[in-house]
Nucleic acid binder design. Structure first.
Length: 559
RNA sequence: UGGGGGAUCGUUCAAUGGCAGGACGGUUGGCUCUGGACCAAUUGAUCGGGGUUCGAAUCCCUGUCCCCCAGCCA
């Protein structure tokens, strides 16, 4: 049993009594959108590590940019973290709660001649910053007197200047090889109402100025973040050193990437606002709200996050891995039922016209405690169009003319005839059944190669079924040619709606939050749009389908 | 090309000087009243070149490739 490098570092710190054996982490989302599966990894790491070491994990909203942030997102983020099963107790913090303290610390830096007010505009600052290979130049305002800086900064705070007219900058080194050290901006003027602070402030601290001090204030021991902040660490340390306050230890790990999906809040927001998807909880989205609505359990996400591990290598996990955990979880918990998505009428010619039988069906073969249920059976049934072929290809085991197969839990039937409409489409299948095979076994021991699901037409309830496919046609939609956008790679067939599926009657009782399997088809759940006048199901994921694989291979062979 | 990181089966994570291993995927077979699940087998990797060592994925040298940084986003 090996452990990841972060746990090794923490274990080592504890062995050296570095933080007095204390482990205190934090998850610091910006409330600028909904949480997605990428965040889930960070949430799991921070909360689970804290718990393992007998420590705590804070929830801290990094709300230093009122332009992007909203209360709606705060509420959604809290709901999603709770759904995952984590509890931050009373430690719900906001970086904005530290604005006063940060302001005082900024004054201190000015007084120590470590910060200055710069009147250069954004464009000029960029030019003065130099490039990756050339050093920057000092701003002409860099050597203002401490008194002037204090006065100017105070007037910035009072709102005497318009947005963008000046900033407070740390005075470090304009020729530093690390770009983050070239006099980074600490405050910008933003005449914006803050969702928590109201109009108290018109200057807002930048993330770089907020982050390390927030960790310090909260007494965070291990500040775990993603790779791109690696070269911000020297800056955070610089601030903490100048201020002479407590340092937490930042450690960076690779964020989660998955193929065929996007884990960029900015881009997800663009899809939501551009109506390419139906809201933040669209089941095609990798948001936690979307996955929940799609039918994922929190355990799937937790188990997945645990098993993918933690490393410093930027990597892209195959979406098949997530789906593996999904199916594994759902297989254990999903209640089985029969549903026909694309109905084809099947008539058992030798079955008594008005007879109805109640057939026993197992609710979950993986869970004996789940019990059984009765499913009504009668002369006229619906079967899946896919389960009949007039001219079956090799390896096709299902129903075909003159072939005998089993109706799940019911009887063996043999196809004797078919009817077609004017267009030549098969409209009816006629069969005869063997009454001796009730329950699904033949007394003479004969076998069939296939078992198909069915629904009694007279008893069926109809429903809308939403079938989802991957949202993007490209495995790496974030990586597109210059003249393209990820929007160009949205899969036009990512949502297919079936309006007239026929289901066994027990499904009328299904409720939001239940995990279901429609036998031989996949896992499904009730959508929140569902109501008494119209049942709506989402397909969470299909079952593994070896026939589809064989069929595809055959098609490729002929093509 | 300045700075910071990284490179192990197709993918991903491990092996911390001592038999390169797991998971996912793929393939093959078994079992099955879900072509599901389950079971078994199999496939398959240390970025290149030098060196140290009885022994190197691991240490040293050298080269190559990849990711991040030039927001008043986080």
């Amino acid at each position: 049993m090996s452990t990841d490098f972060i746990r090794e570092i923490i274990t080592e710190d504890n062995r050296n009594n570095r933080f007095g054996g204390k482990v205190h982490t934090r998850f610091p989302p910006e409330p600028n959108g909904y949480l997605h599966i990428g965040h889930a990894k960070a949430i799991c790491i921070n909360f689970e590590i804290a718990e393992e070491y007998g420590g705590l994990c804070n929830l801290r909203f990094d709300d230093s940019n009122p332009v992007a942030e909203k209360q709606e997102y705060i509420d959604a983020i809290k709901e999603d973290i709770r759904w995952l099963g984590f509890d931050w107790g009373d430690r719900e913090f906001y970086a904005s709660d530290y604005f006063n303290q940060l302001y005082e610390w900024a004054i201190k830096l000015i007084e120590d001649n470590k910060a200055y007010v710069d009147d250069l505009n954004a464009e000029q600052i960029r030019q003065y910053r130099g490039t990756l290979t050339e050093p920057g130049e000092n701003s002409p305002f860099r050597d203002r007197s401490i008194e002037d800086n204090i006065d100017l900064f105070e007037r910035m705070r009072k709102g005497e200047f318009p947005d963008g007219s000046s900033v407070l900058r740390a005075k470090i080194d304009m020729s530093h090889p690390n770009m983050n050290m070239r006099d980074p901006v600490m405050y910008r003027i933003l005449h914006q109402v803050h969702h928590r602070q109201g109009d108290k402030w018109c200057i807002y601290p930048t993330y770089d100025w907020v982050h390390g001090q927030s960790d310090s204030i909260e007494g965070i021991t291990h500040s775990l973040c993603s790779l791109e902040f690696e070269d911000h660490r020297p800056l955070y340390d610089w601030f903490l050193d100048q201020l002479g306050i407590y340092h937490s230890q930042q450690t960076e790990f690779a964020r989660l990437n998955l193929n065929y999906i996007i884990t960029s809040t900015r881009k997800i927001k663009k899809m939501v606002e551009g109506r390419y998807v139906n809201g933040w909880d669209d089941p095609r989205l990798p948001t936690l709200a979307g996955l929940r609505r799609r039918g994922y359990s929190p355990e799937v996400i937790r188990q997945f996050a645990r098993d993918i591990g933690i490393a410093k290598t930027s990597s892209v996990i195959d979406i098949a891995k997530l789906e593996h955990y999904l199916r594994e979880d759902l297989n254990r918990r999903a209640k089985r039922a029969m549903a026909v998505l694309r109905p084809l009428k099947l008539i058992i010619d030798n079955y008594p016209d008005d007879q109805v039988e109640e057939i026993d069906a197992i609710n979950n073969p993986e869970d004996p405690n789940a019990g059984t249920r009765k499913v009504p059976f009668s002369k006229i049934l619906y079967i899946e169009q896919d389960d009949f072929r007039e001219d079956p290809p090799p390896k096709y085991y299902r129903l075909a003319p003159n072939r005998e197969i089993r109706l799940r839990y019911a009887y063996f039937i043999k196809c004797t005839n078919i009817k077609k409409d004017e267009a030549g489409n098969i409209s009816e299948i006629h069969c005869i059944y063997d009454p001796q095979t009730r329950g699904g076994d033949a007394p003479d021991g004969r076998k069939v190669k296939a078992t198909i699901h069915w629904v009694s037409s007279k008893h069926a309830i109809s429903a809308e079924i939403r079938l989802y496919d991957r949202l993007f046609t490209k495995p790496d939609p974030e990586n597109v040619p210059e003249d393209k956008s990820f929007i160009d790679f949205i899969n036009p067939y990512s949502l297919a709606i079936i309006t007239d599926a026929e289901l066994e009657p027990s499904l009328a009782e299904a409720r939001v939050g239940e995990y279901l399997q429609f036998e031989r088809l996949g896992y499904f759940c009730i959508d929140k749009d569902s109501g008494s006048e119209k049942l709506i199901f989402n397909r969470t994921v299909t079952l593994r389908d070896t026939w589809a694989k064989i069929e595809k291979k055959q098609q490729n062979a002929t093509a």
